[in-house]
Design a protein around this nucleic acid. Structure first.
Length: 571
RNA sequence: CGGGGUGUGGCGCAGCUUGGCAGCGCGUCUGCUUUGGGAGCAGAAGGCCCUGGGUUCAAAUCCCAGCACCCCGACCA
């Protein structure tokens, strides 16, 4: 491709709206333009990247037994009513009506659509397993779209749905997808990690997210170097520390005037935050529930939500005072029974000896409080937010922390949608059974942004070879070298290399700046200095390495570099 | 939805306090000179100052209402 005939509207200045690197660079490199909040046009350079990602995804989906289909983006409300999600999905769904005032939505996801399709077509276990996927735009009216295409309201997604006859089949489908995803991100040349994830409202017991690692990522990942354990911080758990060995001391009340918060109490009494029991009250449905966590722990809202399994919120102090006559800041589990409040505690409470907690009396705390002797708990659960340094739940090694961008998520759905939509098949005994389903998503457009987050510097993007819009950029310093550059261009193209020839009548500086910005992996500079010795100057964008190659070797050297830097996954 | 901020040529911004010809830098176009990391000179084009209403002889500027966009939070397969 000739630069002069290709539309790459680079910007010198950073548009004010962009916050993170990938967003700034996609705008500056002329890849995207905004149409509305969370709605973007993809320009030629970005489209090439999308196509490359798409091709790898398609190859791996096909290899894993997937068959590509294309379902309607506009979906009738009826099927959403059947699963109850027309109401559940709420404001996040783009809705519209046709001329007959019939309700439709723009598909945020396609469980309803695909399940309806399969229900009407597949009758027998003999037709299973079935793995159908598509790549198309998805629509979610996010409350707050942000970071360019990272969290857009219209985005490109690959979604595959698996239909199996039993759990065993589902497990095979799930494993096939897990492997396919690992192959995809490896082949795309991205540093990634698969982590255990919370399956959230979509249900199911097992779920993994695929994270592209980047310090600016929105998700926090905890992982163990010793074993394979890795989870996002919504899901991560830690091994329990050993219970303290000390002898129980007699419980005593101490005066702590005006000391209501954890830092205040620890400072006033000269104890560690880990010796404190925090008591929080949540309004769950109609009742107030007491939740106990160690003073140095943070409550994990996702885990708490999964436990309650209904709407809940932190009860404001006034309500606690009004309903239970308790002074927030001086509340503790001892004697709480008399209030008929359900007490839920994080597992770590079990390991505490001679703890400190509120005395349920203003300006007083209790010392040397011990489980069983002084108070009891209704339910123990893992409720704390795991953090770096915690012991790994599998091997006790300290967990490490990193950040990532979620680019893929796989779920075991079970029969949630097939049951709701009455999608059944006949098994070998002639019995009607609901399909056992799984769903598996990849954010195609998000991968572009994630790849840039992972690979950029002050000067611009540094594309990994597999997803670069072009593999090689040829940069003649002046028009004097254009003929030589054209010749190299011709040879490389003949060898099947994707080349961008910067044939613009611009000064060298401008071309260098744009080259760095758009980040083509190999830059071949054709200038008088090199040509005097029959050589071109080569710079590797990713590493900054520089070489001199004799003119005659350019094609073979380029092919060797590309081969070496295109990850291959063996069958 | 709560809080904060911003809307002025394609991009980045000044002007608004104290009403009086709409400006600067970059980019774009033309010409000349230049040509190894965003060149110089000369000239030119390009504006519903977010929208609507109000105050005023006069509004980018003051007042009212609305809209859009960005950030923080809540929310979110």
């Amino acid at each position: 491709m000739r630069y002069s005939q290709y539309y790459i509207p680079t910007l010198r200045e950073i548009p004010a709206e962009a916050e993170i690197d990938s967003h700034k660079l996609m705008l500056r490199a002329g890849m995207i333009r905004k149409a509305a909040a969370g709605m973007y046009s993809f320009l030629p350079l970005a489209y090439r990247v999308l196509q490359k990602i798409r091709r790898v995804v398609e190859e791996e989906m096909d290899r894993a037994g997937g068959q590509q289909v294309l379902l309607p983006i506009v979906q009738p409300a009826e099927i959403w009513h059947q699963t109850g999600r027309w109401d559940v999905y709420g404001e996040e769904m783009f809705r519209l009506q046709d001329r007959h005032q019939r309700d439709f939505c723009l598909g945020p996801t396609h469980e309803e659509m695909i399940t309806t399709l399969v229900k009407n077509e597949v009758r027998s276990y003999r037709e299973l397993p079935l793995r159908l996927y598509q790549i198309q735009n998805k629509y979610r009216d996010e409350i707050r779209p942000r970071y360019g295409v990272m969290r857009a309201r219209e985005f490109i997604m690959k979604d595959l749905y698996s239909f199996d006859r039993d759990e065993e089949g589902l497990n095979r489908s799930y494993e096939a997808m897990y492997e396919a995803y690992s192959r995809i991100f490896t082949r795309l040349g991205l540093k990634f990690r698969a982590v255990e994830a919370d399956s959230g409202a979509i249900g199911g017991d097992v779920s993994h997210e695929f994270m592209v690692l980047a310090p600016s990522g929105e998700s926090v990942i905890l992982y163990c170097e010793q074993c394979d354990y890795a989870a996002n911080n919504e899901k991560a758990s830690a091994a329990l520390p050993a219970k303290g060995e000390e002898a129980f001391l007699p419980c005593e009340e101490v005066h702590t005037p005006g000391q209501a918060t954890v830092p205040e109490v620890t400072a006033y009494l000269g104890v560690e935050a880990s010796q404190l029991i925090k008591t929080l009250f949540y309004q769950v449905g109609e009742e107030l529930v007491a939740v106990l966590v160690r003073g140095d722990d943070e409550l994990n809202d996702i885990k708490l939500g999964n436990l309650f399994n209904q709407p809940y919120r932190l009860a404001p102090p006034e309500e606690v005072a009004a309903q239970l006559d308790l002074p927030v800041g001086y509340v503790g589990p001892v004697g709480l029974r008399t209030k008929k409040v359900k007490i839920i505690a994080d597992h770590r409470i079990k390991t505490m000896v001679n703890a400190v907690c509120g005395a349920n009396r203003r300006d007083y705390h209790l010392r040397n409080v011990n489980l069983e002797r002084d108070f009891t708990v209704d339910t123990f659960a893992d409720l704390r937010l795991a953090k770096a340094g915690d012991p790994c739940p599998h091997c006790q090694q300290p967990l490490l922390e990193t950040r990532g961008v979620e680019v893929g998520h796989i779920f075991k759905l079970g029969t949630k949608y097939s049951s709701a939509l009455r999608a059944y098949f006949r098994d070998e005994n002639g019995e009607e059974k609901p399909f056992i389903m799984g769903c598996y998503g990849i954010g195609i457009s998000r991968i572009v942004a994630a790849a840039i987050e992972q690979n950029n510097d002050q000067d611009g993007i540094k594309w990994p070879v597999p997803i670069a819009p072009f593999q090689v950029l040829i940069l003649p310093i002046t028009s004097e070298q254009l003929a030589t550059a054209e010749e190299i261009y011709r040879q490389l193209r003949a060898a099947g290399v994707e080349v961008l020839l910067d044939d613009r009548e611009e000064r060298a500086g401008v071309k260098f700046k744009d080259a760095d910005l758009i980040g083509i992996p190999l830059r071949i500079t054709v200038g008088p200095k090199g040509l005097a010795q029959g050589e071109v100057e080569v710079k590797v964008r990713l590493t900054g390495e520089e070489f001199r190659w004799p003119l005659a070797d350019v094609t073979s050297q380029v092919l060797a570099y590309l081969a070496k830097n295109t990850p291959v996954v063996n069958d």
